[in-house]
Simulated scan of single mutants.
Amino acid sequence: MTIALLLIVCYLLGAIPAGLWLGKIFFKKNLHDFGSGNTGTTNTFRVLGAKAGVAVFIFDLLKGTLATLLPIFFHVHGISPLIFGLFAVIGHTISIFDHFHGGKAVATSAGVVLGFNPLFLLYILLIFLIVLFLFSMISLSSISAAVAALIGIAIFPAFHFILPHYDLIFSVIILVLAGIIIFRHQSNVKRIKNRNESVIPWGLNLSKQHKI
């Protein structure tokens, strides 16, 4: 019973559309009507500004972290904390509070990894920042970080680097999270191919995207 209740709580926690509510309450703007129409961190930055973007990023990140830590706080055994984190990500992407729409799962997925293995998140973050500097695209950086995570779970345990051994549950959850992130960025991939993806005013923009 406790496990079922906590899973529901984690879904509802993840389902809180921070960007959407922040925009409506404080800026009188519906994020669905601006930019990409997404309610996540990137579109919040673009539409509502840096302060709102940072606030939404931190909130979405901590949703994943808190969900992953909740079973530990409640001394729940027999089920991996990562399952609870996954429910938060599902809530974030398919939110009951937003007509089952949601974000692209990047920040909340990062929060799940933060709650379970902070060093692995540092590795993913490093890849994200390198790609961001080279290409100036949040979307490509997010996809690259997801792919890097998949490479990490496949290779690192063999060398006992960051991941001391192969962990089936961790590997499966990372596979699912990476799959969600890549799937949710399909429209971005098309724009990248057409060289009209949104870029940030930082980095080298090596692929010469034209949309700012």
Rank of each mutant, 00 (worst) to 15 (best):
V112K: 02
N43G: 04
G37F: 10
L204K: 07
S142Q: 01
S141K: 00
D33Y: 13
I16Q: 04
G103P: 09
F84W: 03
C10R: 00
S136E: 06
A88T: 02
L7C: 05
G115H: 01
S207R: 09
L132F: 14
G91Y: 00
F156C: 13
F57C: 03
L140K: 02
S198P: 09
F128G: 05
I155L: 15
A148F: 11
L7G: 00
V189I: 15
N43T: 03
K190N: 15
A110G: 15
L132P: 06
L177E: 01
F170R: 03
V54H: 00
M1R: 13
L69N: 08
I16L: 07
K211G: 12
W202A: 13
G23I: 04
M137I: 05
V189H: 08
S142Y: 01
K211I: 11
T68V: 06
I96V: 15
G23Y: 01
L119Y: 15
L62I: 08
G203M: 09
A148E: 08
D33C: 11
P164E: 04
F59A: 06
V106L: 14
G40L: 01
S36N: 04
I124G: 12
G37N: 07
M1L: 08
V9Y: 08
I192W: 10
I79R: 09
I90A: 01
R195S: 06
T68L: 06
F100R: 11
L20C: 13
N30V: 05
H32A: 13
R46G: 00
F27S: 10
A67F: 02
N38Y: 05
N205W: 01
F59D: 01
P118T: 09
A146L: 04
R46W: 02
N194W: 09
H165E: 12
H32D: 10
L5N: 06
L7Q: 01
H210G: 15
V47R: 03
T42Y: 04
L69T: 09
H77N: 12
N117Y: 06
S198M: 10
G85I: 00
A149C: 10
G85R: 00
F120H: 12
L13D: 00
P71K: 05
P17M: 14
V131F: 09
D167K: 01
P201Y: 06
K211H: 15
G35S: 07
V172W: 12
F183I: 15
G203A: 07
L163Q: 04
L122Y: 13
S80G: 10
F133D: 10
S187H: 13
I151Y: 14
V172R: 12
L129W: 10
G49K: 00
I127P: 07
H92Y: 05
L121W: 12
L175T: 15
V106P: 11
I155N: 14
L126E: 12
K28C: 05
I96F: 11
V172H: 10
G19M: 10
A67L: 03
V176H: 11
V176P: 10
P157F: 11
V9Q: 07
G19N: 12
F59I: 09
F183P: 12
I8F: 07
I180L: 13
L6H: 05
I155A: 15
F100M: 12
L7S: 00
S80E: 13
F133Y: 15
A107F: 08
S144G: 07
T44V: 08
L121P: 10
G19Y: 07
L168N: 14
N205D: 04
H77F: 13
K190S: 12
T108S: 02
T108A: 02
I174Y: 11
